[in-house]
Amino acid sequence: MGGAERNARKKKQQQRATKAVASARGASGDRTKVIIGVVVVVVLAVAVIGGVIWSSSDSGSGSDDSLANPPAVTGVSAPIVREGGAVVVGKDDAKVTIDLYEDFLCPACGSFKKAYGEQIKQEIEAGRLKVRYHALPYLNRLSDPEGYSRDSSNAALCAADEEKFWEYHETLFLRQPEEGGPGHTKEELVKLGTDLGITGDAFKQCVESGTHEQAAQGELDAVRATGKFEGTPTVMRDGQIVQWDDRDWLTNLLK
């Protein structure tokens, strides 16, 4: 297959992936009807990104095995600072700053991550993009038992305190549980941090006591108050919604 043909095929696959992600995201306010669409998105996104395999065989179980031996993830070469309930990744003089609102239980967020995560990382490391990550307890009632969105958003902020936000964030999506099923327990969330190299008792205490739960809830309340929040994932720039259903949305922002 020639280079031109491969590029044309890749472009077509990414267009299909983007359309499927957007369709899944808007299908239902509580995301309970998007699971089938998300499966399609995962398959397409893997091909778009270039054959990178995102293992999902262990996700959704909520058992000890689901977080055992987490896939190797690398950090990001950029400054990372926690600011209340948000985590800012990127250089201060980056050309573009966006706010990314996500939920670690949200299937459409996982698909967004697969489709655009690598490009976002590349632009952050190139110094052109800064991202304010807002992990929200938006789908808190949609795990069984309830509370995984709250627990995971708190744990990610705890990991930021230990300078492991990026690795923890990436692994939570790699080990994303199914919506409607059991999420990872607090014990498992602590173990994940330990497996990623977090030492000492501070992280464990932070996760178990819910130290940053109010901060994460505050981020959700604040974005809802804007009247522009469209559910997770939502991308905003300067307080305005960015329509990411166009596969070139990030490229266009950086022009």
Rank of each mutant, 00 (worst) to 15 (best):
F112S: 01
N154L: 13
C158G: 10
Q122G: 02
R128F: 03
A135C: 03
L105W: 05
Y133M: 13
A108I: 05
I98Q: 00
A94H: 00
K113G: 04
P145V: 06
E125V: 06
G147K: 14
N140H: 12
F104V: 04
A160R: 04
I124A: 06
A135T: 14
E125I: 02
K113V: 01
G117E: 02
R128T: 12
A159D: 09
A94N: 00
R141K: 14
E102G: 00
P107S: 03
K113Y: 10
V131K: 10
G110H: 02
A159S: 13
E102R: 02
H134C: 08
L157R: 13
A160S: 14
L139D: 08
A94L: 07
E125F: 07
A94K: 07
K91Y: 09
D151G: 08
A160T: 11
D92A: 12
R132G: 00
D93A: 11
Y138E: 12
Q119L: 12
D92M: 03
L157S: 13
L105C: 04
C106V: 10
A160Y: 10
T97R: 13
S143V: 07
L142R: 14
K95Y: 07
S111C: 13
D93I: 04
P137Y: 10
K113T: 02
G117N: 11
E118C: 00
D144T: 14
A155V: 12
A160N: 09
F104Y: 15
A115F: 01
A94S: 15
Y148Q: 00
L105S: 03
D99I: 02
Y138V: 05
A159C: 14
E118V: 14
I120D: 06
Y116L: 03
D144V: 09
P145Y: 12
E102I: 08
R150Y: 01
L129G: 03
V89C: 04
L136T: 07
C106G: 00
A155G: 11
A155Y: 12
G117I: 05
D144L: 08
I124K: 08
L105N: 00
K91S: 09
K130T: 05
R128M: 03
V96G: 04
P107R: 09
P107N: 00
A108F: 06
A108V: 03
L142E: 14
I124E: 10
A135I: 01
V88M: 05
H134N: 15
L129H: 09
E123G: 06
D151P: 10
D99Q: 15
C109E: 04
Y148K: 04
A108N: 13
P145G: 02
K130V: 03
V131D: 06
N140E: 15
V89D: 02
A156T: 15
G110K: 03
D93N: 15
G127L: 10
S111W: 01
Q119A: 14
Y148T: 08
S143N: 11
V131L: 03
R141H: 07
A94W: 07
P137C: 06
R141N: 14
I98A: 01
H134L: 06
D93G: 01
L136A: 07
A115L: 15
L142P: 00
I124C: 04
L157F: 11
Q119G: 05
A160K: 13
V96H: 08
G117K: 11
E118R: 14
N154V: 07
S149N: 09
L105A: 08
I124G: 10
G90F: 02
K130F: 05
K91R: 15
G90L: 04
I120K: 02
K95H: 11
S149R: 12
K121E: 12
P137L: 07
